[in-house]
Simulated scan of single mutants.
Amino acid sequence: MGVLAVGLWLAALTGYDIARRRLPNLLTVPGAVLILGWAVASGRGWPALCGAVALFGAYLLIHLVSPADLGAGDVKLALGLGALTGAFGIDVWTLAALGAPLLTAVWALAARVCGRRGPVPHGPAMCAASAAAVALVLVQP
């Protein structure tokens, strides 16, 4: 799967979530399927599947406990991003999984300091953390 295609997918997800405060199935589900297909074809299917299931499970649990704080779109996005980061190893997966809530917290704090109230979308932080974690692997010499 091309870096450009993944980058465009992440940018589309980010823009959509910021503009509409939701992540549509039309973007989340096909992306997850394509990433899992790429992972299987490149011999990284098992780690990608494990990453997808683990991140999906964690996000589903949080959504079930507090649906107002984490939407179903974020849960579905976790499938694709968990697969993407899982395909590159547990350390990449962990960095993205921990980085996303930290980025959301920083964004929420900055918004509050600037006088904005209310929740901030979590999808952009998920995309940014995943992109950064994968980029660290791809740019290593």
Rank of each mutant, 00 (worst) to 15 (best):
V3H: 04
L4P: 03
A5D: 04
A5N: 01
V6M: 06
G7L: 13
L8N: 01
L10M: 12
L13H: 00
L13G: 01
I18D: 10
A19F: 08
A19D: 08
A19I: 02
L26Q: 12
L27S: 04
L27T: 01
V29L: 09
P30N: 02
G31E: 01
A32W: 00
L36K: 03
G37Q: 03
G37K: 00
W38F: 12
A39I: 04
R44M: 03
G45H: 03
P47V: 10
P47G: 10
L49E: 08
C50I: 11
C50F: 13
G51R: 05
A52I: 12
V53R: 06
G57V: 10
A58P: 06
L60E: 12
L60S: 14
L60V: 10
L61E: 14
I62F: 13
L64M: 15
P67M: 09
P67F: 12
D69S: 13
D69Y: 12
L70I: 11
A78W: 07
G80H: 02
G80P: 09
L81K: 06
G82E: 04
L84K: 05
L84M: 07
G86E: 08
A87H: 08
G89Q: 04
I90D: 06
W93A: 12
W93V: 01
W93G: 07
T94L: 15
T94H: 11
T94G: 12
L95E: 08
L98T: 13
L98Y: 08
A100R: 03
A100S: 12
P101K: 09
L102S: 11
L103P: 06
L103K: 02
L109V: 15
A110F: 11
A111Y: 13
V113D: 07
V113C: 07
C114Q: 14
G115D: 10
R116C: 13
P119E: 14
V120C: 14
P121F: 08
P121C: 06
H122V: 08
G123V: 08
A125Q: 07
A125E: 09
A128V: 13
A129Q: 04
V134A: 06
V134S: 02
A135K: 02
L136W: 05
L136P: 00
P141H: 02
